[in-house]
């Protein structure tokens, strides 16, 4: 019981909600409302008084032996604790999620490295004055003229797509 009570601590919803993306927002909100009802139930159950005023009853009831018997039996009674069969499942799922997150982070780190490499490549280019047209086409492939589709100058759909006209 003590170990279970140690597990109970306030959930930091502000931390969770700020880290949740817009596509998960509704799911997390339903989860939050469910947990709020659970918390309310717990608080309500905690507030109910579990003590029995034995003195009052032993005074009020003439049959003392019966009260004694009640008291002894109540003391002897072991209330069965609810069996926890979901905890293992949750732990397993948590470990799986952790692995999935690590996998995602690893993959996105690879992507990130690629993107950063590209950024560095672009930032280390010399001034355009000293770059050849081939350099430009190599580092900015979207500027390449399409000789196959448009055999005649300007090798683009229209003249406004020329670099100077389009990116002025």
């Amino acid at each position: 019981m003590a170990s279970r009570q140690a597990l109970i601590k306030p959930i930091e919803w502000s931390k969770i909600l700020e880290r949740v993306g817009p596509e998960m927002k509704s799911k997390v909100n339903t989860f939050k409302s469910k947990s709020d009802t659970i918390l309310n139930n717990y608080v309500k159950a905690n507030e109910t008084k579990l003590a029995i005023d034995w003195d009052h009853y032993s005074k009020a009831i003439a049959n003392k032996a019966m009260v004694q018997e009640f008291q002894q039996k109540f003391k002897a009674l072991q209330i069965p604790k609810p069996i926890d069969n979901k905890s293992e499942e949750l732990k397993k799922k948590a470990i799986e999620d952790e692995q999935a997150v690590q996998k995602f982070v690893k993959e996105s780190d690879e992507n990130l490295a690629e993107v950063v490499e590209n950024l560095e490549r672009l930032n280390s280019l010399p001034p355009f004055e000293q770059m050849t047209m081939d350099d430009n086409y190599e580092h900015f492939p979207r500027l390449r003229p399409d000789f196959k589709k448009y055999p005649f100058w300007p090798h683009r759909e229209n003249i406004d797509d020329l670099i100077v006209n389009k990116y002025r």
């Binding site: 009570q5 597990l7 959930i11 659970i38 717990y42 159950a45 979901k86 905890s87 948590a94």
Partner: peptide, 12 residues
């Protein structure tokens, strides 16, 4: 949070 909820439900 789910663990906490479970513990709370059992305790309740």
């Amino acid at each position: 949070a789910k663990q906490v909820n479970l513990a709370m439900m059992l305790e309740t």
